[in-house]
């Protein structure tokens, strides 16, 4: 699963192959200092889609009485996953930045379990990507949180 070959550094060009975009996004995401601090794992990347995993950690707890993860940690997971989905969109020519993000906390994440986020760009314009995501623990029938956001986007002209 993790890329073992060390790819040659390549200059970002206007036209990038699908594989190259995905490889570069994975490299970029795995190098982010805060993603490393959280222990975020890139599970999969596709065209306008991403799936990340946040391992459970006592450091990220919001309420020590219950051991439930803080909403902020789940926000970081969702924001990263949404951003990666935008970067991986086939029409995107550059990076992205979050314009806004709304998170609904439907229930507490079960203590001890990793949280997985799945994000998809459901619409893009020339300059904006609309993204939605959900966060799941082991009970995948009942999402922990849902997010919708708008991200900057630079469509190939």
């Amino acid at each position: 699963m993790p890329p073992n070959d060390t790819p040659e550094p390549s200059k970002p060009s206007r036209r990038r192959s699908r594989e190259e975009v995905i490889r570069m996004t994975r490299q970029f995401m795995e190098a982010l200092p805060h993603a490393k601090a959280l222990g975020l794992e890139v599970r999969s990347l596709g065209e306008g889609r991403a799936e990340f995993l946040l391992p459970y950690s006592a450091e990220l707890v919001g309420d020590p009485d219950t051991g439930v993860l803080h909403g902020g940690a789940v926000s970081s997971l969702l924001d990263s996953t949404c951003g990666a989905a935008v970067i991986c969109h086939p029409e995107n020519t550059g990076g992205t930045a979050t314009l806004d993000l709304r998170i609904d906390y439907m229930r507490a994440a079960t203590p001890g379990q990793a949280v997985i986020a799945r994000a998809e760009c459901y619409h893009v314009t020339r300059s904006v990507a609309f993204v939605r995501a959900e966060a799941l623990d082991d009970d995948t029938e009942r999402p922990v949180a849902a997010a919708t956001g708008a991200f900057t986007f630079a469509a190939a002209s």
Binding site: A31, L32, P33, H34, A35, L38, H70, G71, G72, A73, S75, S76, L77, L78, D79, S80, G83, G95, A97, T98, L101, I103
Partner: peptide, 15 residues
């Protein structure tokens, strides 16, 4: 979150 700029991670700001 973005070492190129560099900029704080959006999730950090949310948290």
């Amino acid at each position: 979150g973005n070492p190129m700029l560099p900029a704080l991670h959006g999730g950090v700001i949310a948290g």
